[in-house]
Amino acid sequence: MAAGGDHGSPDSYRSPLASRYASPEMCFVFSDRYKFRTWRQLWLWLAEAEQTLGLPITDEQIQEMKSNLENIDFKMAAEEEKRLRHDVMAHVHTFGHCCPKAAGIIHLGATSCYVGDNTDLIILRNALDLLLPKLARVISRLADFAKERASLPTLGFTHFQPAQLTTVGKRCCLWIQDLCMDLQNLKRVRDDLRFRGVKGTTGTQASFLQLFEGDDHKVEQLDKMVTEKAGFKRAFIITGQTYTRKVDIEVLSVLASLGASVHKICTDIRLLANLKEMEEPFEKQQIGSSAMPYKRNPMRSERCCSLARHLMTLVMDPLQTASVQWFERTLDDSANRRICLAEAFLTADTILNTLQNISEGLVVYPKVIERRIRQELPFMATENIIMAMVKAGGSRQDCHEKIRVLSQQAASVVKQEGGDNDLIERIQVDAYFSPIHSQLDHLLDPSSFTGRASQQVQRFLEEEVYPLLKPYESVMKVKAELCL
């Protein structure tokens, strides 16, 4: 049975990233139509530049190519590739079939990587351009969430054990800070992308030097003109047959890092959902379990974690691919890159769409948070109580021993009897502590235990987050809708 299948058929496997999760716009960027249309555009740009620099290419040939950029006979191309065992030459023939007058000058002087690699770089750039505003929107939604809850005390956790208090907004800023680093890295790697350009079979530009009869300047002009037509500021000066596969490492490393950030955020949300302090959106008709109707599973956060793990592992592909590119190139890269580049971007696209949807509907339960604080705060307040007693004339050592005994009794009630923490009640009825009984409410005010959390939130948002989001103001209103 021949390899390949009808990918629109229910009898043929289709990647869930495309069929179930990723956005239509990201799927289109990695589609065959987008790819092969870009090949034709690159052939047109090459012909236009070659004509401008004096090669015998007519206006009629150029116009014929322009008129057929979208006229792609995919069936013919597939048949040609089956016959020739070469995808680029299959599309040269297919393009030439609908451009008979231009057929002889299509791909003039070029090698397969002229269309293959340059198209990949265009796709990487455009895919990054799709991700950047999506990530900015996630940051914006979380920034709104953090600002609104900047002063809401909550129990902090280290080692997932109760620690000092923080605020809900401050905790959210930990998430935002990681995503801001990801946004900066995505922008950097996007701006650092260079075009492969017009380089020939081993990167020496020998074929173009021959076409222009040894004119170095025209060869350099050709490279520059096509690079500018493709919208790049610069091209690699040095290439082998391909652009260095280190570029793929750079791009997928940034995406993998984004995956790590999203995994951490969504894990926190899942843990908070278990504590009943916070939940992701839950639709009115949504079913959490087929057997347990009360369940409210954090399905979206779980999906993000599941896909983020996949995204983090994909960076190993370009690392290994770059390491086995012998001399000017081997074909070890080809099949692998067809999979890992598309999957990385479709996965990143999915987790950003999902995280935006989550961040637009996060639900906080202040009463649950308050109750958990009441359970733990008495123990945390013991040092403040000791200091207040010393100020009232008591002995630190005597007070410490009193607190120690009462704390152990209260802990026994919590752990052995399943009761509430009654340390404060014990202190309130103990005559030894009568000098500070009137101060206990103040000493137990949760806001006095959150330090500068709310001020940190305000400063972080104003100095770091809002300036970073400013270039994306025009796209901030787009909502994230999930079908599944």
Rank of each mutant, 00 (worst) to 15 (best):
L362H: 05
G200Q: 04
I62P: 02
Y34Q: 05
P471F: 15
F433N: 04
L209N: 15
R303I: 01
A136E: 09
I358C: 15
V198P: 10
K402V: 06
L179K: 01
C172I: 10
C483L: 12
A392T: 10
A273K: 00
I385R: 01
H97F: 12
I339G: 04
V413I: 12
D6Q: 03
L346R: 05
F232W: 05
T58A: 10
M181W: 09
E50N: 05
E328G: 05
H86P: 00
C98L: 11
L314G: 08
F212D: 03
E81W: 00
V315L: 12
G288E: 02
Y294N: 03
F74I: 15
L355G: 04
T450N: 04
F208T: 04
T267Y: 04
P133T: 13
R371T: 05
A163M: 00
N336E: 03
D120V: 08
P16I: 15
L355E: 01
C305E: 01
T38K: 06
P366C: 02
E360G: 09
L131N: 11
R396Y: 05
T321F: 06
C173N: 00
E328V: 01
Q456M: 08
S289A: 02
D182G: 03
R337I: 02
R141F: 12
M278R: 01
C305D: 05
D223R: 01
L209Q: 13
P56L: 10
L314W: 07
K264S: 05
E213M: 13
P467C: 08
F460Q: 02
R194A: 14
A260P: 07
G203S: 02
D6L: 06
A235H: 10
A381V: 11
Q210S: 14
C305N: 07
V364F: 05
C173Q: 04
C173A: 14
I265S: 12
A47E: 00
V478W: 15
M26W: 00
L155T: 01
R245N: 03
L142R: 02
A388Q: 05
L124I: 08
A392Y: 07
E328K: 02
V315C: 11
L440D: 04
V189L: 15
F212Q: 06
F157H: 11
N71A: 10
L209T: 11
E463T: 08
I358S: 11
A273W: 03
G5R: 11
V414Q: 04
V262Y: 02
T166Y: 01
M292N: 02
I403G: 05
H107N: 00
G54M: 08
A260C: 07
S448P: 11
G361C: 15
R452P: 03
A206G: 14
A411C: 14
A348T: 14
D59F: 09
E343Y: 07
L17M: 15
L165G: 00
E48S: 07
Y466E: 12
T354N: 09
F157R: 06
S207K: 01
P366M: 03
T154W: 10
K391P: 07
R196K: 10
E370A: 08
C305K: 02
D73P: 12
V364A: 05
L272S: 13
P100L: 09
Y432M: 14
Q51S: 10
Q456E: 02
E370S: 10
K367V: 02
P378Q: 03
K147L: 11
V457N: 04
G214Q: 13
F95R: 01
I373G: 04
L121C: 13
E279G: 06
A3R: 11
Q356K: 03
E250R: 10
W43N: 03
M476C: 15
R85F: 08
R188E: 06
K199V: 04
N353M: 10
A344P: 06
A260Y: 02
H442M: 15
D6A: 11
C27S: 09
A146G: 08
L255H: 10
P467Q: 15
N384V: 09
G259S: 11
A411Y: 05
M292V: 01
E70D: 13
Y294G: 03
C99D: 00
V168Q: 04
R296M: 15
S334G: 10
E79M: 11
L423E: 05
D215S: 14
F232M: 09
T354M: 14
A273E: 10
D191A: 08
F433V: 04
D420N: 06
K224Y: 14
L135C: 06
